[in-house]
């Protein structure tokens, strides 16, 4: 992991976002959620997006995955710009883990059904073996295979959600506040899991969080967002040494470390 925590950009860029605008609604109702966001994430890097609620950080992830439909600018994955309509192959490359594990699993589908369907959609044939492997990968084991979401704790649900995201063997994992709905002890488990998975599968992470400490733990570089704009992009090491230049970043830092 230390090898990739270089901070500077090396190698090819796995995900590149340039002049991204995202908006909701039309005419007078139009709300600009993201304005002119640009950043690059190298292969194997993990990149953080930090900001308060409503700053547009989650919206960037939704635009990358195509869940937010109204956007302009360039989004390129592995050097290839993506269009407004995503091909099926796109979802083999990019996957997302949602914030609230209580809302991201279908209440009537068992773990087995969730993972089995995902594998089926990605065109795998050896579904049984893969479901077992996925559950192993996220530290759940076969015991949990036939349970329904209401029989799982928050942390276990989030593990299932991570397994689902990993099912298609993606290269980029977008993490939308994956631990903010969890207790701190469970958060530690999930963050460790994410660290391990990245090392094992050579994943590229983009993590959104309001918690500077969590982003600092997982990511090597981060972008700070405020009012729909990226105000600063910097290395986490530089942040630790309090070399933030933008007053808002300094503010966040004060609130996170204290004084």
């Amino acid at each position: 992991m230390t090898g990739t925590k270089t901070g500077t950009m090396t190698g090819t860029s796995m995900l590149s976002v340039k002049d991204l605008d995202v908006w909701f609604g039309h005419g007078d109702d139009r709300v600009d959620a993201v304005q002119g966001a640009s950043f690059d994430v190298a292969k194997g890097e993990s990149f953080g997006l930090v900001g308060e609620s409503g700053s547009g950080k989650s919206t960037i992830l939704r635009a990358i995955t195509g869940l937010a439909k109204d956007w302009s600018g360039t989004i390129a994955v592995d050097g290839e710009p993506v269009g407004h309509k995503r091909a099926k192959s796109f979802y083999r490359k990019v996957q997302m883990v949602f914030q609230d594990p209580y809302a991201s699993l279908h209440p009537r589908h068992s773990v087995d059904a969730v993972l089995g369907e995902t594998l089926h959609l990605h065109g795998f044939k050896d579904i049984d073996a893969r479901v077992v492997k996925l559950l192993d990968d996220v530290g759940l084991g076969n015991r949990f295979r036939f349970r329904y979401p209401h029989q799982l704790s928050g942390g276990q649900r989030q593990r299932v959600a991570i397994a689902r995201a990993l099912a298609g063997e993606p290269e980029i994992l977008l993490l939308d506040e994956p631990t903010s709905a969890l207790d701190v002890s469970v958060q530690a488990e999930i963050l460790n899991l994410l660290t391990d998975l990245r090392a094992e599968h050579g994943l590229t992470y983009v993590m959104v969080s309001h918690d500077l400490a969590v982003v600092g733990h997982i990511c090597a570089r981060l972008a700070v967002m405020k009012d729909a704009r990226v105000v600063e992009i910097m290395d986490v090491d530089a942040l630790r040494k309090r070399r933030a230049t933008h007053p808002y970043t300094q503010d966040l830092l004060r609130n996170s470390i204290g004084a």
Partner: peptide
């Protein structure tokens, strides 16, 4: 608009499957 529908859309599921199975 719930997350679990978004999640299955991100697996490349089409509208027919989403309506019938989810």
């Amino acid at each position: 608009n719930s997350d679990f529908i978004s999640a299955v859309r991100l697996q490349g599921a089409g509208p027919f499957r989403i309506i019938v199975k989810h």
